[in-house]
């Protein structure tokens, strides 16, 4: 499903972040990525989502190189297939929670009846008409997660989705994520610093300067 081939990325001033990174994730796999702060985890997710471009190397999704897509095709791919959760959970401040969560459905032109249920699932039942400014950091993070999952994406990219949650809530939300990914037959990547969180994934990868390596053998399911 997801292939990384010799991906290189450096920022301005020659700051090398990812060097010759290669890895292949099969469809239906749910991987956790851990690694030191600043090693390039968020950068890697941005590259996979097509929000930024690698300096060299290729990223293929279902065999199609993202770089070969024009902007509209890449946008369409993101809209239909991707669920993205940012480290700095971005939401639109002037839309209600219901509206924020319904965004991917609206963009895809699909019915929005799932919004209420999703909101309830992340523990925000009856708050659909509130605005983001009325919510706590952890609640906002849950809104971002609900939005990323609402349209049943085929690829879920989650960047530290539970950083602001207490362990119990975090666990519930991570279980929800896992269940969604598995029922939809989707592929998932979970970036986290928490071993407990990483444990909800199928397996854990470690991102270092040298590359992406499995930490332990695949979890038996």
């Amino acid at each position: 499903m997801l292939e990384l081939c010799n991906v290189n990325k450096a920022y301005a001033e020659g700051r090398r972040v990812l060097t010759n990174l290669s890895y292949t994730l099969k469809a239906g796999e749910y991987a956790a990525i851990m690694g030191d702060s600043g090693v390039g985890k968020s950068t890697l997710l941005n590259l996979i989502a097509g929000l930024d471009t690698p300096d060299s190397g290729e990223i293929r999704i279902n065999g199609v190189a993202i770089s070969s897509l024009d902007d509209n095709a890449a946008t369409q791919l993101r809209r239909e297939q991707f669920g993205f959760i940012f480290q700095a959970f971005h939401v639109l401040p002037h839309l209600t929670l219901n509206q924020n969560i319904a965004l991917p459905l609206l963009l895809n032109g699909t019915p929005t009846d799932r919004v209420e249920q999703m909101l309830a699932d992340v523990g925000l039942r009856d708050r659909g008409h509130h605005f983001p400014r009325q919510l706590s950091g952890g609640e906002l993070q849950r809104v971002a997660i609900a939005r990323a999952l609402i349209h049943r994406p085929k690829l879920v990219l989650a960047d530290e989705p539970t950083g602001n949650l207490d362990p119990d809530t975090a666990h519930e939300i991570l279980q929800l994520m896992r269940a969604e990914i598995k029922t939809n037959g989707a592929t998932g990547i979970l970036v986290t610093h928490s071993h407990a969180a990483a444990a909800t994934a199928d397996f854990v990868l470690n991102l270092t300067k040298d590359g992406l390596y499995p930490v332990k053998s695949e979890r038996s399911e």
Partner: peptide, 11 residues
């Protein structure tokens, strides 16, 4: 930018 990420095309 967020709208773009979520699937707003440029147009």
């Amino acid at each position: 930018a967020l709208l773009r990420v979520l699937g707003f095309t440029r147009q």
